[in-house]
């Protein structure tokens, strides 16, 4: 099986919780506010992963450095400020 075929045959999240499909959330750090209720966020446990755009409308006021619990592209809980 070639590398491409292997990637095709293997589910993207077979080893860990799927951050979007299950009842799971991930703590992500807000890197920058993008306006229109969106923020660029980083998974500090997976620094090689690209940043993701997250809808932060449901958690009140946030600022770069804050930690939020994200599920399916939406922040559901404000976990704390820069020191969290």
């Amino acid at each position: 099986m070639t590398g491409d075929e292997q990637a095709w045959a293997t589910p993207a999240c077979v080893d860990e919780h799927c951050i979007t499909c299950g009842d799971q959330g991930l703590p992500l750090r807000i890197v920058a506010l993008e306006g229109a209720g969106l923020a660029r966020c980083r998974d500090e446990a997976a620094p090689s992963e690209p940043d993701t755009t997250v809808d932060v409308q449901l958690v009140g006021e946030v600022a770069p450095g804050d930690l939020v619990l994200v599920h399916a592209g939406v922040a559901l809980v404000h976990l704390g400020g820069v020191s969290a």
């Binding site: 499909c21 009842d23 399916a72 559901l76």
Partner: peptide
């Protein structure tokens, strides 16, 4: 769209 109440807000906001 699939998921319980954890995912539904994401669909709603979108």
């Amino acid at each position: 769209a699939i998921g319980f109440e954890t995912t539904a807000p994401s669909t709603a906001l979108t």
